[in-house]
């Protein structure tokens, strides 16, 4: 068994609110410095910097996961993670068709830069990425599963775009098996108040928008990784997120 430290909630320069220094190579390099072994890139409503992030991760010796932070129709943020890059890109195309298109005002919201594996700007998204999509919170889990992904509500301990602030509870009907905290010190308070959280796998991630937001290693998965491959590690992590071995 080996420990794999993770951060599953990171924004790149493609998210309007994230710093332009959050380039794929900077993210991967800082992950190494922070002692993170597995990092997921989760830009708002897009996975279009994931291909570049995969190249940068390989160069820096960390295991990448392709993801997205989806904004639901109710303005709730949900982390979506995929075992394979191609699955994330297919989901990305699906989300593209379900976005509400408002022209991005870069002077207000910031740039939305798409990069290649060498941190060159190869494009940008002209429409604001962070606003609500047409996908409802009730439909997220099964929709993401149809792309072989896993989804769970992001930063539920936050007022802005957290599921509890928005819906008043952690609704069991949505079927989520995991959930994310921004502040690990809030976990006890929330699990006492919302008892169904005790059954969930609780993850803590940084939601970094600036380089200095990326936290040092903290939470980890204990994984039997023999014979080692990054695919094997990813597979085992997704098993844990799907709670396959829970019974």
């Amino acid at each position: 068994m080996n420990r794999y430290y993770y951060d599953f909630h990171i924004h790149s320069c493609l998210s309007p609110c994230a710093d332009n220094d959050m380039t794929p190579n900077n993210l991967a390099a800082v992950a190494t410095l922070a002692g993170i072994n597995v990092m997921a890139l989760t830009d708002h409503n897009t996975s279009k910097n994931c291909p570049a992030f995969f190249q940068a991760a390989k160069r820096n010796g960390i295991i990448p996961i392709a993801g997205m932070e989806l904004t639901t129709a109710e303005d709730i943020h949900v982390v979506c993670l995929f075992e394979k890059l191609e699955e994330a890109m297919e989901f990305d195309s699906f989300v593209d068709k379900n976005r509400i298109r408002i022209k991005n005002k870069t002077e207000i919201f910031g740039d939305q830069l798409i990069m290649d594996g060498e941190d060159n700007v190869i494009g940008n998204d002209d429409y604001l990425l962070s606003n609500a999509t047409l996908i409802t919170i009730d439909d997220v889990k099964k929709t993401v599963e149809s792309f072989n992904g896993v989804s769970y509500p992001a930063h539920i301990d936050r007022e802005a775009n957290g599921i509890i602030a928005t819906l008043g509870t952690f609704p069991e009907e949505c079927g989520f098996l995991c959930t994310e905290f921004y502040d690990e010190n809030k976990i006890d308070e929330y699990t006492e108040k919302y008892l169904n959280l005790k059954e969930k796998k609780l993850l803590v991630s940084s939601d970094a928008h600036y380089i200095w937001d990326i936290k040092d290693k903290r939470d980890y998965f204990e994984i039997d990784d023999e014979p080692y491959s990054s695919d094997k590690v990813r597979r085992e992590i997704f098993k844990a997120l799907r709670m396959v071995d829970k019974s």
Binding site: E74, D138, I164, A165, T166, L167, G168, T169, P171
Partner: peptide, 29 residues
């Protein structure tokens, strides 16, 4: 209001509650 955690704490008995939220939790609130 649309943030249900706020509505739960602020709306009073007998009030008309105006919202754009359509999730089933509005009934509970």
């Amino acid at each position: 209001g649309d943030l249900l955690s706020w509505v739960m704490g602020k709306a009073e008995s007998g009030n008309v509650w105006i919202t754009i939220m359509s999730n089933v939790n509005i009934i509970a609130v």
